[in-house]
């Protein structure tokens, strides 16, 4: 077992799983039928990606845990997702802004992983990056539409970006896992994604007539299992049935 690779796989898988669960909560509650459909389709893509990452994580771990065991029977402190994906859905603008900031990073990290020295990781990334490009195209388009919409939507989007901004730094901070994966060519160096991410985000915010926030402090911890209170609430929903009736199937 390569523990740094395992940690990295859990990070990728947990990001997808947690964000998918968040988006699924919009099912039936979207502001328009098209948005409802779109968000749940994005959720579905992310769930499929989570399954691939977590299956591979289970194989890497070699203790017989499959995707379900990892999704349903780990506690919050064992989740390795970034803090931004567990932030509340809020109003629709918050969900869109969270998605946009994440998609821009996700697209770059997957592009980097698609040339990973680990062929299995490269395969999953090559599959996922195609889907995530589309997610980004959609969330960027919505940022622009809402940023340029009405004074009300503009103000809400600006506030949403500022609310989430402190969470949009964690992914560029390299720790021992990131460094080990970067030096073995498994993953791109975390800080190397910062400049392309900023450029992309700035281009969209500019078109959306939204201001790029300055530095307003930042949060970290998700990658080593230190989470905000929101993750626990999300997991109670996600894990309830399997925790109550272990092994239950449809």
């Amino acid at each position: 077992m390569n523990t740094t690779k395992l940690e990295y796989l859990l990070r990728m898988g947990d990001n997808c799983l947690v964000l998918s669960q968040q988006l699924a909560a919009w099912c039936g509650h979207g502001p328009a039928l098209e948005e409802d459909l779109a968000l749940t389709n994005v959720a579905l893509d992310l769930l499929g990606q989570a399954r691939m990452w977590l299956t591979l994580a289970g194989e890497e771990e070699g203790k017989g845990r499959d995707e379900d065991a990892l999704a349903y029977f780990r506690d919050g402190s064992e989740f390795r997702n970034l803090l931004i994906v567990e932030q509340p859905n809020g109003h629709y603008g918050n969900t869109v802004a969270r998605q946009f900031l994440f998609d821009a990073w996700h697209m770059h990290v997957l592009a980097g992983l698609s040339t990973s020295s680990d062929a299995r990781i490269a395969e999953i990334a090559q599959k996922s990056v195609k889907e995530v490009r589309y997610h980004f195209e959609r969330s960027a388009g919505l940022m622009i539409a809402l940023g340029r919409g009405t004074p009300e939507s503009h103000a809400r989007m600006q506030a949403a970006v500022e609310l989430l901004w402190p969470y949009a730094n964690e992914w560029f901070e390299s720790d021992a896992v990131d460094e080990a994966c970067a030096s073995s060519g498994v993953a791109p160096a975390a800080p190397s994604l910062a400049a392309p991410w900023r450029a992309r985000v700035e281009a969209v915010l500019d078109r959306a007539t939204l201001k790029m926030p300055g530095y307003i402090g930042h949060q970290r911890g998700g990658k080593r299992g230190v989470h905000t209170e929101h993750l626990g609430h999300l997991l109670t929903d996600l894990q309830f049935v399997q925790r109550t009736y272990p092994g239950a199937q449809w």
Partner: peptide, 14 residues
């Protein structure tokens, strides 16, 4: 292209 090597141009995308 699926390999991620192709540059993604945001202005073209939108």
């Amino acid at each position: 292209a699926a390999d991620g090597t192709q540059a993604i141009d945001i202005s073209a995308l939108l």
